[in-house]
Design a binder for these strands. Sequence first.
DNA 1: AGCACGCCGACT
DNA 2: GTCGGCGTGCTC
Length: 664
Amino acid sequence: MTARRIARVLLDSPLPQLDRLFDYEIPDELAPEAHEGVRVRVPLRAAGRIVDGFIVELDDEPSADRPLSEVESVISSVPVLPRRLYDLARKVADRSAGSASDILRLVVPRRMVRAERSWQNAERAGVPEVSASTAEWAATALASFPGAADSLTRGARIALTAPTAPVTPGSPAPGWVGILAAAAARLLVAGRSSILVVPDHRDLDQLEQGLIAHGLGEALIRTDAAQSAPARYGAYLRVLEPTPSIVIGNRSAVYAPVHALGLIAVWDDGDPLLREPLSPGVHARDAALVRQEQEQFALVFAGFTRTTDVQRLVDIGWVEELRAARPAAPRVVLTPLREGETGTARIPSAAFTAAREAVRSGPVLVQVSRPGYAPVLACAECRHPARCRACGGPLHAGARGATPTCSACGRRAEGWTCASCGGARFLLIGSGSRRTAEELGRAFPGIRIIVSDADHPVLDVPETPALVIATRGAEPRAARGYRAVLLLDGERMLLADDLRIAEHCLRWWSNAAALAGPGAPVHLVGVAGALGRALATWSQPAFARAELAERAELRMPPAVRVASLEGPRPAVETALATVRSDVPGLQASDVLGPVPLPTTGSHDGDVRALVRCDYHDGPALARSLRAALVAAALRGRRSRSRGGARATLRIRLDLPDLNLETQQ
DNA sequence: AGCACGCCGACT
DNA sequence: GTCGGCGTGCTC
């Protein structure tokens, strides 16, 4: 009996029933290349096709044991899936009831032959140098948080509120960039790598510029979904090199298999962009926490605000709070809105005066809740909301006198008449950014007006006088800070149908307030109470703690974990039965629904149920959901072949919210 | 997804 | 005795 070489292969398939390792024999001619971590093509006989996969491990076994198929070919001899990355993907997938290959697809780029060849021919860069001046700068910057350097080197889990001013006076890099850059520099000196995760592209640009400005460009690797496929693959090959580096990127960068990981920093973890929209929908914060359980590195959650998710970790002692030696806060002025004020009076006179004063010396930021001109229209006769004739969606106007357009389907409503009274005239309700710009333009003659929203974002504004009207999240940066910030429409923002709206508003306002220059006033208009006080006293962690206590009482996330199950009613009911018997800790009140899904076309007649549980029961819930998903996938084929509806079950774990309507 | 296998009824 | 339809289960 002779021994044969076998490979355990993870298949690149989204099918839940294939999410395990398959054994293949390695034919002699492939043996020299078939290392651990390489991409291979293997036959799946029962499926009658060839599929891609990764060799996760190698082994020897006697030939006679069982018949095995052979590895068909080795796609590339570069080991792109290190064992520790597979282990991480496995753990993250298990925690979220997803497939390991769904995680790895986000991390390991497709092979690009030319990029691989040029990387192989390029000279290996040595260990990146950190100049004495950079090391000294980093030490000084970190000193603004007593104990930071020690926490970073001992691999602590940290939550911190970033400074709104640059860490070095006069530096072009914002304070948050300075702190993250200094932390990465500190670890690079110690020969360790860092991963800095930010929500969007603009953050990435700023971070990249800041790192280069502080002399850390040599170690920098940017990973970015907007890169070309060869550039992504080239960057990934650099990440794999056995030298310390600083990887910056969006949510998927959290998995980067760098050498000697010393730090993962997640910036502004309340931004929804940090949650992967593709199944299984893992948040970068959760992925970082899982990773921290299997590797020894410092984990930093930094922002201008505090999410209830991170505050929960602080409260249970899993994450420690790192405080600035001299906490600096923007100068927030709570400005009430008097009854009966209309038009430009939605800006109270105190805020108006502050803007007039401030705009003489530079840019003033005005944050509004909605883009466009008039976001809502109503019948001038009966005041009923104006609706689209085709789909019933709400109408809005792009400009004064323009034909109304449906906000849901985009159709133009030529010759609109009111459905309830037949009236033909409508009123413009509310002010979007363009209408606000028009109003302010009249009030501030001769002052330049700049509008920035999600569709037409402006990244930077000059230091010259200007009124900058921006929707939340689209605020441009002003190099030396805004001379004043006006946060309008707070009341309206708080009306959104979202159970976490107060937390979100505090994040939007904090992020805008952080753009104010030193001593510049920030007017929060029309918001009082605990929320207004939290911004005014810059005490977001205390607000998050109070919010979390309320959520714990109501058994809402993040005090508990929540899963959603969607699909045809029988599939959801069957899965719920599985979950009920597998997770004994589940209370009857912890299963919500099933209720019919709003009909969106593709899944007509589907229902949704929510299941919530304590963190203690989370692993059992994830395992049970996974089993239900595999069972549904096997059963689903049968009903489909009988001509039945798609029997697929869709499962998500760790929803941010219980709200059934606003969940995507 | 796509293929094999096995059970059962209908035909040579 | 054996051909083939269809439901079921698996994929190294």
